[in-house]
Design a protein around this nucleic acid. Sequence first.
DNA 1: GCAACTATCTCGCTGATCGAGAGAATAGTG
DNA 2: CACTATTCTCTCGATCAGCGAGATAGTTGC
Lengths: 166, 166
Amino acid sequence: MSEVEEPMRLVHLLRGLTVELDLFGAEFASRNGLHPTDLRALIHLLDASRAGEVVTPGRLGEALHLNSAGTTGLVDRLERLGLIRRERDPQDRRRVRLLVEERAMELGQGFFGGLIGDLLAEMRRFDPAELATARRFLEAMTGVVTAARQDGREEAAGPTPARGSS
Amino acid sequence: MSEVEEPMRLVHLLRGLTVELDLFGAEFASRNGLHPTDLRALIHLLDASRAGEVVTPGRLGEALHLNSAGTTGLVDRLERLGLIRRERDPQDRRRVRLLVEERAMELGQGFFGGLIGDLLAEMRRFDPAELATARRFLEAMTGVVTAARQDGREEAAGPTPARGSS
DNA sequence: GCAACTATCTCGCTGATCGAGAGAATAGTG
DNA sequence: CACTATTCTCTCGATCAGCGAGATAGTTGC
């Protein structure tokens, strides 16, 4: 337990936080008959809806790294649950627009809304300078992860010694 | 636009960070022929190994919210990949100890080692006071999520708690 | 020794996702 | 106007992670 450990505790805190958020999402999902993928899709759809963007199955599948078949299945599930609705794009009739139903908004609101409210309330206990520091910190960490993600892709054939073990 | 938006950006940053970390893990997993669940299991096993704790299929399945059949399948996969080894507990021969192989350590190192190093390096750009603030912030946010998780459970449990069926 | 309990594994099944390709609409070319 | 290439989405069949129920082997108490 030396001073060098402090940053390491932050690393574990970050990991712990993501685990908690994942669990939170997973529990919410299963409680509502959703799969983790469905929840990710719902978040994406609500974000896009709020931003006024049109989402098609193609875009959604791309965002979630699903192929077309998987995307169709996902959209089927969400539609069956009454969370979204398919509608052909009148401009380009090959496309299908995914429209978010009221129920999806309520679902997202009723659950994430509560969490976000709690998070915001907790943030009020920090002064603006501290929040600015936290933000800078989070942005820096996010940047590192994003960069590592791309490095990893490029090095995909690199430092993978794990061979010949059995 | 307004100052009220600043905390909201922090909320989105938190979410964005978890998404990035998830993607990082998912990409690493698929690159190594692992499933997301396998990676979570690996993390759990490595943590326990470092802490000197004995992990059994039962404990592992409990930690990952898998039932016994799913756990057996998971352990089969990890064993087939040469990441762990089964060994009967000589004290209580009903039990199976899961022993982490060298290869799993290397894999974990190749995965986290690089990322953690990068995160620590980035943290050096913050002074101790800032890191302390970041830590306080992360702890506060984690606490909120954890609390919300339990609240959600209790609300959903309702009239029939039916605990013990995890 | 018998009964109750515990830890793990086996079996059959559901369902999310994949690869391949079909169907339908658009855009470009002559 | 056909004719072809392109772009979206959906369908079909297969794969495999995870579930529920029950089997198997080991432990503990009477």
